[in-house]
């Protein structure tokens, strides 16, 4: 029996020392802290968890009220309210771009002195820390809340994010081109225009669009606290429990948000890579590319969906 093959090479097991399993004390301590914080939060929070029991039933009930069927007749109103929200987002973002662009230049290392740079960066950080809704609440107290002040709140919020992204993009530009322009005797403004901007432009433009996507969501939220648009219409109907109108409004919010994300995402992709990549078309193209790859390296990962080994 002892002649039967085993995995152990004869005489080798005793000469090799197996390592001891590492203890990982810090990791365990960290886990303990995390678990303690979570348990404390659950334990201390003022929630009667029993209410969760009839939650699914209730949710079902309200979903039924909202979507079976939604009030299609309100679709035109919903769409025009949405247009106002989108306008708010666009105007706010555009204003934010106009304000933040020069500021982010002044916050870029190599373009402005420290005394200008750091205060500006602090302002950006401060603006990013305050949620847009809070900015809107402040504006509401001072000037009253309209679509225009909503757009202003978005603009102020945008300055925080766009300012930061801007100077980061400018600083990430490879020093070579800047150096070449400086060496050729260019002024600081000329260096900016011909050394930095051509390299940073695609990224910065993409950021602007991305910020617009964020602003669309923000403008819907601002509506909820009174700045007009789709959010205003939503909160009114929720408060008066007109659920089928809430249903259609939710559909519009979801569809419009997804649509704007798709369009903006496609344009951003075009700006960064220089190629158009339209969602559905690309998926089809990718499928045929996958078949071609199969030939080069046959792999389980590509063919399992066909042979049916679903785990």
């Amino acid at each position: 029996m002892s002649a039967a093959p085993t995995l152990v090479a004869p005489g080798r097991a005793t000469t090799q020392d197996r390592p001891r399993k590492p203890a990982n004390v810090t990791r365990k301590a960290l886990w303990l802290v995390v678990v303690a914080v979570v348990v404390a939060a659950f334990w201390g929070v003022d929630i009667s968890w029993g209410a969760l029991w009839d939650m699914p039933g209730k949710l079902w009930h309200y979903l039924g009220l909202m979507f079976l069927p939604p009030a299609w007749s309100k679709l035109p109103d919903a769409l025009s309210a949405t247009m106002l929200s989108v306008a708010m987002a666009w105007f706010g973002t555009a204003l934010g771009v106009v304000i933040s662009f020069p500021l982010s230049l002044l916050a870029t290392r190599g373009l402005a002195p420290v005394a200008v740079r750091w205060p500006l960066r602090a302002v950006f950080a401060l603006l990013r820390a305050v949620p847009e809704v809070v900015i809107a609440v402040l504006m509401l107290s001072v000037t009253g809340l309209t679509a225009f002040t909503g757009a202003l709140a978005i603009a102020i919020g945008s300055v925080g994010t766009l300012g930061k992204w801007g100077y980061e993009a400018f600083e990430a530009v490879d020093g070579g081109a800047t150096e070449a322009a400086t060496a050729a005797g260019a002024s600081r403004a000329q260096v900016m225009r011909w050394g930095v901007w051509p390299n940073a432009a695609p990224e910065v433009l993409a950021f602007w669009l991305y910020r617009f996507e964020i602003s669309v969501r923000a403008s819907a939220i601002l509506g909820l606290i009174g700045a007009g648009g789709i959010g205003k219409m939503l909160i009114d109907n929720i408060q008066f429990r007109v659920w089928d109108v809430v249903g259609i409004l939710m559909i519009v919010v979801v569809v419009v948000t997804m649509l704007i994300d798709q369009i903006s995402g496609t344009v951003r992709h075009r700006i960064i890579t220089g190629r158009w990549e339209v969602p559905v078309v690309t998926a089809l193209r990718r499928r045929s590319a996958r078949a071609a790859r199969l030939e080069a390296s046959p792999s389980i990962l590509e063919d399992d969906s066909r042979s049916g080994t679903v785990g």
């Binding site: 929070v45 003022d46 929630i47 009667s48 209410a51 969760l52 939650m55 209730k58 949710l59 309200y62 809704v133 969501r217 819907a220 939220i221 909820l224 606290i225 959010g231 939503l234 909160i235 929720i238 408060q239 429990r241 809430v246 939710m250 919010v253 979801v254 948000t257 997804m258 994300d261």
Partner: peptide, 20 residues
């Protein structure tokens, strides 16, 4: 694609005001 504040306003009507 649904904003957090919208979820909140709906839940407040459905399960009531508060942390839940």
């Amino acid at each position: 694609s649904i904003p957090d504040l919208l979820y909140a306003s709906i839940f407040v009507t459905v399960v009531g005001t508060g942390a839940l």
